[in-house]
Simulated assay, not measured.
Amino acid sequence: MDPIINIQGIRKVYRMGQETIVALKQIDLQIFQGEICCLLGTSGSGKSTLLNMIAGLEKPTKGSVQIKGHYIEKMNEAQLAKFRQKYIGFVFQSYNLIPSLTALENVCLPLVFQGVPKKKRETMAKEMLEAVGLGSRLKHKPNEMSGGQQQRVSIARAFVNRPTIIFADEPTGNLDTNTTIEILELMTSMARKYNQTMVVVSHDTEIADYADRLIHMKDGEIISIEQKTTEGMK
């Protein structure tokens, strides 16, 4: 089977005055359709930088990233925006909800950009919010919800247009332990239901119970890859 994400020789160097910082040294990695992978490591290990490279949020210094056969680093911003709208969903640590919009309106946003008619997108957004347990919070704004509820809205927004790939950057970083488990179970069960690929960045070993592969990073390198057995996953 061909990988849906193919990372070859990725290197990222930042220059700050006279100083050179090597954030990623030489990364080769393949991720397959329907796989849930976690980039695991402490702060400064390079895991978020690698996610940014894969998602096209930053350009690598060297190397290539292919998603569905498309070279991400060769796309301009307009091409990347169109590509993300079609194939990619994002879940962030800080939720990134628009404060002035209701939960329903926040979840509708990706569908607005795709040109989905108003009635259809509201129906899709409502169904997704109900799926994440927020059917009674459709008209609530972010400041009227708890952190866990805001993250559920963020997840609903990421999944609403059934993207091929979900990128999640520290999605449970601002949550307590019980809410962390709820969010991980919710995200992974939805990804498995729709056979979506998910790449999660985390420093939390709790993710180990939910991922198919744990990709351990340190000092800008992959130091080990742990393949989980089906029996070991929740």
Score class of each variant (00 low, 15 high):
L111V: 09
L104K: 05
S154D: 01
K141S: 00
R152W: 02
G148C: 04
E130Q: 11
A131Q: 14
E130Y: 03
L134W: 11
G135L: 06
L111N: 05
R157E: 00
A125C: 02
K120P: 04
G148M: 03
E127G: 11
K141Y: 12
G147P: 10
L111M: 15
P142S: 06
L104S: 04
N143V: 14
V116M: 13
Q114W: 14
G147Y: 05
G147E: 10
L104T: 03
S146W: 08
A158F: 06
A125Q: 00
R121K: 14
K139E: 13
E122R: 14
E105C: 07
R152I: 01
L109M: 14
A131T: 12
S136K: 14
G135I: 06
G135S: 05
E122L: 11
M145R: 07
N106T: 01
C108Y: 01
V132Y: 06
M128H: 08
Q150W: 04
G133A: 09
C108M: 15
V112S: 03
F113N: 10
I155E: 05
G133L: 10
E127D: 15
G135N: 04
E127F: 12
V153F: 06
V132N: 08
C108T: 10
A158G: 03
S146K: 03
Q151W: 08
R121V: 08
Q151K: 06
A156C: 09
I155W: 05
N106W: 00
E144G: 08
G115A: 07
P117H: 13
L134C: 10
Q149A: 04
L111R: 02
A158M: 10
S146A: 02
R137A: 13
V153Q: 02
S136N: 12
N143D: 15
S154P: 06
E122G: 08
V153I: 10
H140R: 08
L109D: 02
A158S: 08
G148H: 00
K118F: 15
E122C: 10
V112G: 05
I155H: 04
E144N: 09
G147K: 08
E122K: 14
V116P: 11
V107L: 03
A131Y: 11
C108R: 11
Q149R: 07
L104V: 06
A131D: 13
Q151Y: 10
S154R: 01
A156E: 01
A125W: 00
V112I: 15
M145W: 10
N143G: 09
N106P: 00
M145K: 09
L109Q: 06
A125N: 00
P142Y: 02
L138F: 09
L129M: 03
C108N: 05
E127V: 11
H140M: 09
A131W: 07
G115C: 09
L109T: 10
V116N: 10
A125G: 00
R121D: 03
V112F: 11
L129I: 00
M124S: 13
N143I: 12
R137F: 13
E127Q: 15
H140N: 12
S154T: 02
C108W: 00
L109P: 01
E105M: 09
G115N: 06
L134G: 01
P110G: 13
K139N: 11
Q149F: 12
K120D: 15
A125M: 01
K119G: 13
R152A: 07
K126E: 14
R137P: 07
Q151S: 07
